[in-house]
Design a protein around this nucleic acid. Sequence first.
RNA 1: GGGCCUGUAGCUCAGCUAGGUAGAGCGUCCGGCUUUUAACCGGACGGCCCAGGGUUCGAAUCCCUGCAGGCCCGCCA
Length: 512
Amino acid sequence: MHWADVIAEKLLEKGKEHVVSSGITPSGPIHVGSMREILTADAIARAIRDKGGEAELIYVADTADPLRKVYPFLENLGYEKWVGYPLAEIPAPNDEGTYADYFLNPFFEALNAVGVNPRVVDNYKAYKEGKYVNESKNACDNIEKIREILETVSGRQLPKNWFPWTFVNDDGKMISGKVLKYEWPIVEFEDENGDVFTNNIEKGEGKLPWRLDWPAKWNVLGVTFEAFGKDHATKGGSYDSGVKIVRDIYGGTEPEKTVYEWINLKGEGAMHSSTGLAISANEILEVIPPEVLRWLIMKPQPNRHIDFDPGIGILNLTGDYERVELDYNKNEEKTDVHRAYELSQVDTEMKESGDLLGQVKSYRNLLTLVQSKSSLDDMISSLKRIGILEESTEEIEEYLGKRVEYVKNWLARYAPDEIKFEIKKETPENEFDDEQKKVIKEIVTEFNAIEWNAEEIHNSFYRVQDKSEMEAKKIFEIVYLALLGQNYGPKMGFFLATNLEREFVVERLESY
RNA sequence: GGGCCUGUAGCUCAGCUAGGUAGAGCGUCCGGCUUUUAACCGGACGGCCCAGGGUUCGAAUCCCUGCAGGCCCGCCA
């Protein structure tokens, strides 16, 4: 059984209705690794619904968190002065809206593209609206109990004057301080300079510290399931303390959990936006279709790490997906791999085979097409000319246009050189010997005689092989050299028939 | 120091929750389709299931002890 179904069944044993929560702090560009959290949650929510349960997917944006430091991507933008302020109150790098929105909005676009539509909870607003009042009061009234929990579970010593609240000073900066006086909902405290401030907890001036904030979310939102990274799962970590706090302090229950592994950039290590070693979710969606991004995460078990290779690995990833797609449509009996394919669909309604363009839509074939033709119109008329496409509709053009964009972007940004080629406008310099020149003549003769389609072109290479006793491989090389200036290239039949006029090819060959 | 995950065919992994004669994809080799930027179809080769112990009629699967790799323990997914 697919992992999402296993978890869903376990959850359904406990009840029919579920709240599946996930969340990320929008402190920078939200990268592919972060996608794993919400896509894992989404898969489980879908699996619950598929089995007749009800599931609501919630995304908590931790906009109340302070900016921790000046990240590499913030250097020289004057963010030093904003360190310590809530992300919801800091201006965006482009000065339009808040810092949090600046990073959240593109992420929501990405979520929308991959078919994830959670209810968004803005944590900053939630505090301001008093959503956490009960939990905050319980926390402030039970300092000693909480102290004991945190000290036992995490094994660390809390400061003498520890108070379960992160304060803000009059500027709105989040600071630590020493409590002078507490009388719900007002807390009076002193910062390290001896300045005295008051916060009204009821009004969300300040927030609960993380270890209390997380279980408060569980309680307020009624979370029954959450997938989170292993940093929170360590023994004595925030999940462990959260369990005790939600039970003993807030009077609720902890959610079921799944711990997922990180996504590494192949050969470089875990993605991490603060070190710049990360590819954002949006960047990836410019290079592969959304269903393939889902596939990247749906296929492996959550507890296995994923090596993401944006280079040649993209060909394997897309090829893998396309192979399973064909297999899915062929087989009645569905395996876990097929289930992973279902969960990779952007629309929950399964479409009839995605066979809109047959083999042409394959990433690999489009690589050839894109590198040979300058415009979408050219591509479409080529496809029509050789009969792969009977008639172009608006739907097809839009579909093909999107796929072409992915491939173009990949070629420009990540593709290794071996994959790239260019049809040379000027005849490339080649020193062909007599034998090769003889073969060229025979190729020209063949090309002039045949019907200009993929199959015939291929056949002609083998006829020349028989006549000339030169290996077909060598003959292919000659033609690649003449057209591309390199001794390798895309599948010849499809390539020539689709992309080049017979006259052009013949003329080029005759010029040697 | 504490913890989590992983260790099964050359590679990537499934199988382990509820023990019952070892699986897939890719690669390799052979054959076919008149063959290619790492295409398609059929077949074959290929594994002391990390090691050692235990439970059991029976263990890749459960328990214990090691070893190796990755990672986490700072409100970093």
